[in-house]
Write a protein that binds this DNA or RNA. Structure first.
Lengths: 353, 353
DNA sequence: GTGAAAGCGCTAACAG
DNA sequence: CTGTTAGCGCTTTCAC
């Protein structure tokens, strides 16, 4: 393992020799402007540029332990809800001089744990978009590296979340104004904190409004999960031969309105309902959550709860960067961002019984 | 910078001391099974586990230079077309024991260059999903690190691409069968290789079929780009006060069929066309490319060219991993994967003039 | 089979 | 302001 001269890429030793200075001077000139005389500094920069010198990041990180990299972990990259989150995070990271790497765990807590375990020593911090881990597991990693969570509140871990309570209130009131009394919550993954909070908020608000509230699921937070939910949302009359499925009568929805954990589920439910011959919103109103790309081009266009996703990503990364820098400006309590109900065409008054 | 005892995480020195062996033995026991006696090896593993020892990846990478990480660069993470590509790549990477990190460059060649420059020393290889760089720039990086490109053919750089020629032929023949004679290609980014190839293929096939072919654009490969294209696709009659826009007559499409660079553009075009009062497919047929999530839930459901995206990602990563491993099984020529036309509802016979 | 020791390339005391 | 010198934690010869 003797240092091979001229083999491959130049190091500070090479440019030091070329300039007739010590390697440490090169290091200083290149990374601590001002700690070296202008003349030598300039010469070093020139020679370095001429030789095509570029610091070996691995070597640079070893002594300091800092990689200027943070990782954003999303539970399912195939969910458009993350686009704005990612964009916001990227922008904030770039602004702070950090490289953002993205990791997708495909809804698997095991993969999430693996990824974090593998990365914990090589990144400066973690931003979790929608963790599927237990609070304890999250806290364990948070003790080893700065971390901020989104859509999730865990004791002792800074977080930024959309205002689910307020959002659910808006959605429920919208339905109430339309005249609905029976609403069904279509649940997403049990490991999802947002799922729990949304259901809890909806139930609370629903009781105040005098709704008959129920929950079905959990379902995968995907379009096909929505189809499955749709199947569970209808009953079939007993009269046979009426043109429906063999031996069964016409389909009937068991609810007049549904609120789904997310837009994908809502869109799938609309498709499934439509497929059995029901009409949205005439037979059943449906509202989604997230306002994803495409929620405006499905038919009927989806009424949905929009969270400030881009800001969610950006704010999280800003906090994370501050934590890494060691500042103690980090919020002691969750940062709550307002949600907004976007009314489109998938909700309407229930038809008279 | 003296080594601090007991401060923080355990190193091989700590477990070596604890076991009464040399650090090098610990290293061997942990990474080169068989080069250490079974007894000591077992003891070392036990102690390491007990102490919660985990190798410092940074330190491990320094001497070897290998990080067991590859990066997948996509031009725009907000384009659903990448979902399957990413999934395929992830799976192949995981299967080979590599960590895949994802990087989004937001359609910016500058950002792409920056990202690659920053990562070139810290990753073992590059997979470029849809590079916006020049051939020369790509080759420059490819000389420094193993690389494979998708949707792009560059001399001397292994690549895997969908069969654009065959795909465009399918699309054109479909339109011809429907009775179309005038087709307009709605172009995407000029820096996109696929854009160039699709247009060229379409033009060639179109000539064979006796089409009147033209191209408009370039447009941003997004839904709003599609709206812009739609605006360029219609003319307004001169009769005023006919209920259209102030001072203008009814809108008329300048073509009977359009093929768009991608689905986002196609969907935006449908929206824009519909917005001015035209009907798809009655007034104009539109076909997209990619078969993205949501292309089946827009109205009308999009006829589109589907590439084997998941396999695109997986095959690329498999080749990349082989290159990193130093094998020379890498393909000398582009790997071409078949495309498939998915006929839905956005195409129909043109209406009689 | 195991230990000693020399790096990997850079940073950061500590002198001068 | 600049040179000297230890490391960062691990891998890998080279001996024994």
């Amino acid at each position: 393992m003797r240092r091979k001269e001229g083999t491959g890429v130049p190091t500070i030793y090479d440019v030091a020799r070329e300039c007739g200075v010590a390697p440490s001077t090169v290091s200083r000139a290149l990374s601590q402007p001002g700690r070296v005389s202008a003349a030598t500094s300039e010469r070093i920069h020139d020679v370095a540029a001429k030789m095509g010198y570029q610091a070996n990041p691995l070597a640079r990180y070893l002594p300091t332990g800092r990689t200027e990299t943070i990782v954003l972990i999303v539970s399912d990259i195939a969910n458009p809800v993350y686009f704005p989150v990612i964009r916001g995070a990227e922008q904030a990271a770039a602004a702070a001089g950090y490289t953002l790497v993205l990791s997708d765990i495909d809804e698997s807590p095991d993969r999430e744990r693996q990824v974090m375990e593998k990365l914990v020593r090589t990144v400066d911090g973690f931003a979790l978009a929608t963790s599927r881990l237990s609070d304890a597991a999250i806290r364990a990693i948070a003790r080893r590296r700065p971390m901020v969570t989104m859509n999730r509140v865990t004791q002792q871990v800074p977080s930024v979340v959309p205002d689910n309570e307020q959002g659910m209130r808006h959605a429920a009131e919208h339905l109430a104004e339309l005249g609905h009394r029976r609403v069904t919550y279509v649940a997403g993954p049990q490991a999802s904190w947002a799922n729990t909070v949304r259901w809890r908020s909806l139930r609370a608000v629903g009781e105040q409004l005098g709704f008959k509230i129920r929950r079905i699921g959990p379902y995968a937070p995907t379009v096909s999960g929505g189809w499955a939910a749709a199947a569970d949302l209808v009953t079939w009359g007993q009269r046979s031969g009426s043109g429906g499925r063999a031996g069964t009568g016409a389909p009937r929805a068991t609810t007049t309105a549904v609120i789904a954990y997310n837009d994908l589920l809502a869109i799938g439910a609309i498709q499934g309902l439509t497929d059995v011959g029901l009409t949205v919103p005439r037979d059943v109103s449906v509202v989604g959550c997230d306002n994803i790309l495409g929620s405006d081009w499905c038919t009927p266009a989806l009424t949905t709860l929009a969270a400030p996703l881009r800001e969610l990503g950006a704010a999280s990364v800003r906090h994370l960067v501050a934590m890494i820098a060691g500042s103690d400006t980090r919020p002691r309590r969750p940062v709550v961002l307002p949600s907004q109900l976007i009314v489109r065409e998938s909700t309407a008054a229930p038809r008279p019984a």
